[in-house]
Simulated assay, not measured.
Amino acid sequence: MTTQQPPSRPRVALVFGGRSSEHAVSCATAAGVLSAIDRDAFDVIPIGVTKDGRWVAVEANLDALALNAGHTPEVAPSESEVVLPLNTRSRALSAVRAGVPPEPLGDVDVVFPLLHGPFGEDGTVQGLLELADMPYVGSGVLASALMMDKHFMKVAFAGAGLPIGPYEVVTDRDWVRDPGAACARVARLGFPLFVKPARAGSSVGISRVVDADGLTEAIEAARVHDPKVVVEAAIFGREIECGVLGSRGTDPHRASELGEIAVTSGGHQFYDFEAKYLDESDVRLSCPADLPADAAVRMREMAVDAFEAAGCEGLARVDFFYTTDGEIVVNEINTMPGFTPTSMYPMLWAATGLSYTGLITELLELALTRRVGLR
């Protein structure tokens, strides 16, 4: 009698860490996903990317990956590095070490790139996975690159007829050539202003500036993370967020319930890095957000419109302002939003009826059914 073998489970490579200033946030995201992924449905191999870009196989140590006020996680270097096959004939990973034959790590069916910021969320890793013909979760090369850059993100939104706020861009060339002229130009937006690295996330490097005297310091602080800086006029109103989940085939994309972030204490002037990741007790999410019914419907529609205008796939969080005059302004899209259990994107979907584990499963199944390459 022949014993029937159970079907093999898809093997998932969770890739996290990376070279950006959001390295620690990415590690925390990985800890959340590792704690919740359905092990009956998927086999998992965690792969960390060190701060200098080396890919290494790591243990699934949730405590070591946790981010809190007393601990900042980091992917440690290893003597061996993980390499992908950059061809269409194999999906087998290998570990290589100097002077030793490569060690096979087995095939991978899908990659979940839990990378935030440049060199991970910006189309670079997505391009690498396309070269390897490897299915992966999330947006492709163009949408990832476009939505990572707050300058070109706004250009794309404006081109699609979506409402955006007033802004200016200070390039590296602008700043090196004449910082005084750059400051004078952005000051015409009026104060207060928000000064941001163009290609960073998790509120890293963002400053709120209340007068012209603070501009130079704020721009220099942003330039630590990116030589290109975006300066935005303050918009007075409420910050509302919506999660979008990509569809299979021609089915409509789905928008979550709307959520509103309130920073309740801790002296935070805005929803900054500390409020997001270190002082979570100071943050409250109201979901569904208390909005007029017609505004809520329109905002959820606009979230899907922004997702489609950018060419996003898989997942994205769309952030809005709802002004004191009842206007809706699109602020930005995050193509790999914070993804810990207490991050806003999973919480929005939990409030909509999709659990954290269910959301992870949905994204992996979506990636497994999507073809790689041109689509």
Score class of each variant (00 low, 15 high):
310 A>R: 03
361 T>I: 12
172 D>E: 14
343 S>W: 05
49 V>Y: 11
73 P>M: 03
120 G>P: 01
302 M>C: 01
8 S>P: 12
320 F>A: 04
219 I>D: 12
364 L>N: 05
92 A>R: 09
353 G>T: 03
338 G>S: 05
66 A>S: 05
314 G>C: 10
216 T>D: 15
13 A>Q: 00
58 V>T: 10
243 G>V: 01
159 G>S: 02
99 G>R: 09
273 F>I: 10
313 E>D: 14
52 D>L: 12
189 L>V: 05
161 G>M: 00
293 A>W: 02
52 D>F: 06
188 R>G: 14
328 I>T: 11
59 E>F: 01
105 L>Y: 08
277 Y>C: 10
9 R>A: 07
368 L>D: 05
126 Q>C: 08
172 D>C: 14
47 I>C: 06
184 A>M: 14
158 A>R: 08
87 N>T: 13
187 A>Q: 12
295 A>F: 06
4 Q>L: 09
138 G>L: 09
174 D>C: 12
251 D>F: 12
42 F>Q: 11
31 A>Y: 01
46 P>I: 02
281 S>N: 13
144 S>R: 05
334 N>K: 10
17 G>P: 02
268 H>V: 09
211 D>T: 08
146 L>Y: 01
358 G>P: 07
362 E>R: 14
165 G>C: 04
278 L>G: 07
105 L>G: 01
156 A>D: 05
71 H>K: 03
97 R>S: 04
257 E>P: 04
16 F>G: 02
34 L>C: 06
50 T>H: 03
31 A>E: 00
